[in-house]
């Protein structure tokens, strides 16, 4: 079920990038796309009835159904990278605003 939510979020993100003319809205839809993707990655690692993959006192045997730890590790890096890109995007948005005085791509004069 989580899978479908992820895919819907990703579709929403893509739709956002395609239709929005506002820089900030594009960055936001970019984030939605990334979040969708991260949820998708997490849903991959789900094991029915699995337990958090941390060795503690009572469940240190390999046989107990651990949830797959790898996607969670990947998601961490993916989130960090997402933050990086968003930060750069916002910095660029500030510069664009400084230069053209608006966020709407359509009415930016001399954008060519």
């Amino acid at each position: 079920m989580l899978l479908y939510a992820a895919i819907i979020l990703m579709m929403l993100g893509l739709y956002g990038i395609l239709t929005q003319r506002n820089i900030i809205k594009i960055i936001i839809s970019l984030n939605i796309l990334e979040i969708g993707l991260n949820i998708f990655i997490i849903s991959i690692g789900f094991v029915n009835g699995g337990v958090a993959p941390i060795f503690t006192g009572q469940n240190n045997l390999g046989s107990i159904g651990f949830v797959d730890p790898l996607p969670q590790a990947l998601v961490l890096t993916a989130i960090v990278i997402g933050v990086g890109t968003t930060a750069l995007g916002l910095a660029l948005a500030k510069k664009i605003y400084a230069k053209y005085g608006t966020f709407e791509i359509d009415d930016m004069k001399g954008a060519e």
């Binding site: 990038i17 820089i23 594009i26 970019l30 990334e34 890109t85 750069l88 995007g89 660029l92 948005a93 510069k95 664009i96 230069k99 053209y100 791509i105 930016m108 954008a111």
Partner: peptide
Amino acid sequence: PLATFNYLVAGT
């Protein structure tokens, strides 16, 4: 900046 922004969106 707009061109860089395009590059950013496309790359990401």
